[in-house]
Design a protein around this nucleic acid. Structure first.
Lengths: 204, 204
DNA sequence: ACCGTACTTTACCAAGCAGTAAACTTTTAC
DNA sequence: GTAAAAGTTTACTGCTTGGTAAAGTACGGT
């Protein structure tokens, strides 16, 4: 009881710090993120961070897992639909966000992609991202496999198809943020429909 | 005359600095790049940098253009071939480098992609990348258009097709570096052939 | 001989940074 | 009520960093 209450308030504060980290990262970018910036995004002072986390690296590692958990929580889909509409729904969610342009979706994506690129300089972060990426791609591959089994899709290499779709989604999001191509997700959606999914619906 | 010789030696030194910057960036990553690191990668001292460039930002802006020029110079293709093999050649060059796994190709790509992602925090860099990106995508779109005109390709939306191929290439390279997926370029090549180019060759 | 350009060397600085110490306040446990 | 634990604040420290200062060397052009 006492334990759980302590933990709860602790987790509360830690989430406040995570959200402040998110806003600071969103404003200043990974390279120019200072502990001070995070402090300025909270009602608490920046010293609190050192009470809960063991320095900047520890904080950012925790934040990475926080961001990834949020991402995976946001692409939940009820698996009751038929493979076609479920695949559609998953692609849309990855491209446009959970609740159609939810406020802050692209801010979150910006931070996510910056962490992703930085992972090439950090073995631990790379590993965390790899596990995450496997789950994301896997969830799309699963839908493709189910569609093939049910005869809704042509018998393609599901792994390769899932990977391709995942790559296109990733590139379109990155392009929207790095180059400011606002229409990148929509265009990617159309390109997937026209040029990729046509291989899945070949039997029609 | 005297001017040109001064300029030549000046440009020589500046290229030494650019290459040192490349190595330093490759080792330490964008976030942790110090002027000192660049100095340690040269035979010259780090003070020379301040003689030729107006501070760190000016140096990195010049370096961005240097890297982009190198990239564009490396994807030259003689346009004499037929559209199919020219498209193939361009895709291969973008995915695997100019001279089939030229040494240092992936180091250069790593730096390139890190600058790309960072462009979302810097308006000037973003603009430079946008112009560059237009040229890269444009060169692929051109080939597709020519193929359509000559009747070699199906009459698809060339812009959308070129953009899709560019996106897949970009994502596969990024994945190789950020997540260490060594087979990403090869797999992307196969996926493009199986699932995307099939839409171009639909008339066969 | 003389000047200007390119570069070296040594030494330095002010700002910015992550991290710490310790006093203080609130909450929980009994 | 009281004391320990949890959380918070103010003030500070020591290091790193980009950039500078100044004196000196090498050398080609005129």
């Amino acid at each position: 009881m006492s334990d759980s209450r302590e933990t709860v308030s602790s987790k509360d504060t830690e989430e406040v710090i995570m959200e402040a980290t998110f806003r600071a990262l969103s404003k200043h970018g990974y390279k120019d993120l200072r502990m001070r910036d995070i402090g300025e995004e909270m009602d608490l002072t920046r010293q609190v961070i050192h009470y809960h986390f063991d320095g900047k690296y520890d904080l950012l590692s925790a934040f990475l897992e926080y961001v990834i958990d949020q991402y995976e929580g946001s692409v939940e889909v009820d698996g009751s639909d038929d493979p076609r509409s479920e695949l559609d729904a998953r692609i849309d969610q990855c491209l446009f966000g959970p609740e159609f342009e939810e406020f802050g979706h692209w801010d979150r994506m910006k931070v996510y992609h910056e962490l992703y690129t930085h992972a090439q300089n950090d073995g631990d972060h790379r590993e965390i991202f790899n596990e995450h990426y496997d789950r994301v791609r896997g969830s799309i591959v699963e839908v493709v496999e189910e569609g093939i089994e049910r005869g809704d899709f042509a018998p393609v290499d599901a792994e390769r198809m899932g990977q391709l779709i995942t790559d296109v989604i990733h590139a379109a999001r990155g392009r929207r943020m790095a180059l400011g191509h606002e229409d990148a997700p929509e265009e990617a959606r159309k390109a997937i429909d026209e040029f990729i999914l046509s291989s899945l619906y070949a039997d029609d």
